[in-house]
């Protein structure tokens, strides 16, 4: 319980502090710039320039910081079972869709391969940095990896003997440039959504022994427009983080 509140607390605390700092710089810097410009003097111009720099750095600050994605799921099983399953990192690609493989190389180390847009592959090596048997596991990418990743998962008995509460937090710090862009794309518009999906797949796998799917099932002729729309954006029409209004705008849709 303590652990959970710490995960959530830390994340929220960080986010707020960053947010305040960022908006502070943005608003303060902009005010300074406007004040400087209205002076119409060399000192004013200098103030305006300084203000501008502060404002821009404020606007940029958060873009470089990838927030941790986190979620939790209740599974009908014991913490021991959940821990055992999670502890074998080679199981991860079974439920984390963006991973192609994880190979355990020994001594708590593993080699990870993820697949991004257009089949771009990212590789990194990670090691377990802390683990409490049947309670928690923390891992981190090794120094020098092209992507910085750290993860933490904990297993607690759920109230009322309802199984195990699995809470996970994973943070990706992609590098700048095209590779970073590709990583961001891999994580999608909403990395938290991706993580919830992963944990739901884990739950299905642990409870039902398989992940429900309709991929590859038989169906009648699909419409050309729907096929084209899906080609352009595979998240549509029924995949991804939809809004209520969006779902209902499908109402009476003749596709």
């Amino acid at each position: 319980m303590n652990q959970t509140s710490r995960i959530h607390g830390r994340h929220r605390g960080n986010g707020n502090a960053q947010g305040i700092q960022r908006w502070g710089s943005l608003i303060g810097g902009s005010a300074l710039a406007i004040y400087g410009l209205t002076r119409r003097s060399p000192v004013g111009l200098a103030l305006a320039t300084l203000g501008g720099v502060v404002a821009i750095s404020g606007a940029k600050a958060n873009a470089l910081e990838e927030p941790a994605t986190q979620s939790s799921v209740l599974i009908n099983g014991s913490p021991e079972e959940a821990y055992r399953f999670w502890h074998d990192f080679e199981h991860f690609p079974l439920f984390m869709n963006h991973l192609e493989s994880v190979t355990v190389t020994g001594q708590g180390r593993s080699r990870w391969v993820a697949v991004g847009p257009l089949g771009t592959k990212f590789r990194w090596d990670a090691e377990i940095v802390n683990e409490q048997t049947n309670q928690s596991i923390a891992w981190r990418s090794l120094p020098g990896s092209e992507i910085e990743v750290d993860g933490y998962v904990q297993f607690e008995p759920a109230p009322g003997n309802r199984g195990t509460l699995i809470s996970a937090r994973i943070r990706y710090r992609p590098p700048a440039g095209a590779l970073g862009h590709a990583v961001a794309k891999m994580l999608g518009k909403d990395p938290n959504f991706l993580m919830r999906q992963d944990l739901r797949r884990l739950k299905a796998l642990m409870e039902a022994g398989e992940i429900p799917t309709t991929d590859g099932q038989t169906h009648g002729p699909r419409s050309v427009t729907a096929a084209a729309a899906r080609f352009v954006d595979p998240d549509r029409p029924f995949k991804g983080d939809v809004e209520v209004a969006e779902v209902f705008s499908q109402l009476r849709r003749v596709s």
Partner: peptide
């Protein structure tokens, strides 16, 4: 057509 999220070709 009163329930959303049907797609042409659904069995």
């Amino acid at each position: 057509g009163f329930v959303p999220t049907m797609e042409q070709g659904d069995i």
